[in-house]
């Protein structure tokens, strides 16, 4: 296996998680990552000239994922937080109010899926992939402050959900 391919493949998991986060579909995320890998592979001979090849890989994946959303007009991204709140008090919990970890994780996932695309991407890159605000700003081509504001909004929405769940089960 060539050195270039090793470099490209080292980003594969992050690319997949980002595509999966944006699209909400395993199969579509796989297709997007495959397409992104092909694009990276075509640039393989000059990949070592990029200061941050990982940022390049993430940027390609992000763009392809957003294109996918535009073309598919995915329903998941149209869901609103309120819908999850309704779910919270109606269907998904057992009468004994015993929340299971899987249920909680599922709810957080649904909430993240419902975030605006930019918040979702920033949250994914910072809280899951551990990139710095500066790196994210570079990938999204925005000001670092924009990254910070969006990250804060995303985290606060999650906190709001967590608090509601906590209060629901405490009362």
């Amino acid at each position: 296996m060539s050195v270039e391919l090793d470099i490209i493949l080292s980003f594969k998991d992050k690319m997949f998680r980002l595509a999966h986060r944006i699209t909400g579909s395993y199969e579509d995320a796989k297709d997007i990552v495959q397409e992104s890998l092909i694009r990276l592979w075509k640039m393989a001979d000059k990949i070592d000239k990029y200061a941050n090849p990982e940022a390049l890989a993430i940027t390609i994946t992000k763009n392809l994922s957003l294109d996918w959303i535009k073309s598919k007009n995915n329903r998941i991204n149209k869901m609103q937080i309120e819908e999850y709140e309704n779910v919270l008090v109606s269907k998904e919990f057992s009468p004994e109010k015993s929340i299971e970890i899987n249920q909680l994780h599922e709810m957080i996932l649904k909430l993240i899926d419902s975030l605006p695309a930019q918040q979702k991407i920033i949250f994914q890159l910072r809280d899951i992939e551990g990139l710095t605000n500066k790196e994210i700003a570079e990938i999204l081509k925005v000001n670092e402050n924009i990254v910070k504001i969006n990250l804060s909004r995303a985290r606060k929405k999650i906190r709001e959900l967590l608090t509601k769940i906590y209060n629901y089960y405490e009362n």
Partner: peptide
């Protein structure tokens, strides 16, 4: 509740797509 949140983040970090590579 925050503990569950950080466990969630950790589990998300460990999601891997399996071995797939474009045929080309």
């Amino acid at each position: 509740i925050y503990r569950q949140y950080f466990i969630f983040l950790n589990s998300e970090r460990n999601i891997v797509p399996g071995n797939f590579l474009p045929a080309s």
